[in-house]
Amino acid sequence: MTVDDAALDRAFTALGDPVRRALIARLSRGEATVNELAEPFEITKQAISRHIQVLEAAGLITRSRDGQRRPCHLNPSALEALTGWIDEYRLASERQFRRIDAILETVKEQER
């Protein structure tokens, strides 16, 4: 899975803020409106709206229209793209550690 650098930059910049990470965590439990998202924070709804705009611009969340409501939703494909990018490097590191483990095991057996 390929993610372009600009999309990665926007996503990681968006996730660099603790309020936005908390919003993502809340949305992982289901859709919510701006008012619902703002409840646990001691900041204005306008500030929450700006955080939501950053998350939307990064492609991490979407908003829909349900009558007067405009609930926010996580964008699972964007999160999958991020985890896929991270997994590439995690798996590469794990392969290197397995090779090192194999070498150390060989050395250990030779010393016996």
Rank of each mutant, 00 (worst) to 15 (best):
V3C: 04
D5G: 02
D5K: 03
L8I: 02
L8Y: 00
D9R: 12
R10Y: 06
A11C: 08
F12W: 13
F12V: 14
T13W: 15
D17I: 01
P18G: 02
R21A: 04
R21Y: 09
L23V: 13
L23M: 12
L23S: 02
I24P: 00
R26Y: 03
L27N: 00
S28Y: 01
G30P: 07
G30M: 12
E31K: 10
E31V: 04
E31F: 05
T33V: 00
N35R: 14
N35S: 15
E36T: 12
E36P: 11
L37N: 05
L37Q: 00
L37R: 04
L37H: 00
A38P: 07
E39Q: 08
E39Y: 07
P40H: 13
F41D: 06
I43H: 09
T44L: 10
T44F: 08
K45T: 10
K45D: 09
Q46K: 05
Q46W: 11
A47T: 06
S49T: 14
Q53L: 07
Q53Y: 04
Q53S: 02
V54L: 04
E56R: 06
E56S: 15
E56F: 03
A57M: 07
A57Q: 12
G59I: 00
L60K: 02
I61N: 05
R63M: 08
R63V: 04
G67S: 09
Q68I: 11
R69Y: 11
P71Y: 04
C72W: 01
C72L: 06
H73V: 03
A78R: 15
L79E: 01
A81P: 05
G84P: 08
W85R: 09
W85Y: 13
I86R: 05
Y89K: 13
Y89E: 03
Y89I: 07
R90K: 06
R90A: 04
L91C: 05
A92T: 12
S93F: 13
S93W: 10
Q96R: 13
F97I: 15
R98I: 06
R98N: 07
R99F: 04
I100M: 13
D101F: 01
A102I: 08
A102Q: 12
I103R: 14
I103A: 14
I103Q: 15
I103L: 14
L104R: 10
L104E: 06
L104N: 12
E105F: 01
E105I: 01
T106N: 06
V107C: 10
K108P: 01
E109S: 14
E109F: 02
Q110L: 14
E111M: 10
E111S: 09
R112S: 11
R112L: 07
